[in-house]
Amino acid sequence: MKKFLTRVLIILIITLVADRAFSVVVKIFFKTTTTTDEYKLNTVTYKMNDPVIFMGSSRCHHHYVPSVIEDTLKTGVYNAGLWGMHNIYFQYGFLCNILARYTPKTICLEVHPIDYLATPFSQTATVGSLTPYINVSPGCDDMLKVAGLYYKSELSELYRYNSQFANIVAGNVSTRSLASDKGFKPLYGKLDTTFKTTPERFPFGIDTAKVHYLQAFIDKCKEKHIQLIFLFSPFYAVEKNHMVDIPDSMAKKNNIPFINHYNLAGFTGHPEVYYDFGHLNETGAKKYSAIVASELKKYIKN
């Protein structure tokens, strides 16, 4: 038994050493990525200092062109939206990490049903993108705890980069850089409408836990005196139902402007400005950014 337990102990020691050693190497490459989500996460967390930032999931990532908006607002803008179903659990943790370093003047949050409805495809797992940023802010750590990732990430430093291998390699190998786009990523191509004609539907109930963190997001902005604006950009075709009721009522309750363009003329039903049913293409993004910028001008004062 003693011999066996010694062997187990040696395995644990080797594992611990390997975990720490590999994580140092992975961390270096993680920080030198130039094209993938990791690049944007690093930039927003450690470098970006623009007074206006856009936050949200892929629709934010692909819809708001900082250069177009900057021309109108005459102030620095950064698009901190991330590809994927990054819902309010992630956004709240991400916000706390940003606020740990600097305080922007305005945050434009592109809300999506994944932020307040019990959608089956977007739950706490989205917080996983924040494991490399453990211990950056208490708010982010709380979200990692909610997602059940905090203690695993404390125990294993390598686990913080779990599943990131492909992105880290791609982000270091690719010569294309996201740096010049200030976080915006254009989508090229036109929506093919021959395949699907039914509108997007979100037939899900309210998720009270998500609503709690959406309110926490609002409260955090209030606490730091940040002007918060809700945005809802257009879909090609969407069934409204009660889709925007929650952000609408929360905006009214908290005195937050809500620019709701879910069914905007010139966009909804116009395939030439879409890449797919939920995302604008580059042409659509530029056109929409100009519209949004002029509306934002009413709220944002330099």
Partner: peptide, 9 residues
């Protein structure tokens, strides 16, 4: 180590 880095946990 492979499980920690590549595994779906």
């Amino acid at each position: 180590v492979l499980v920690l880095f590549f595994g779906v946990l």
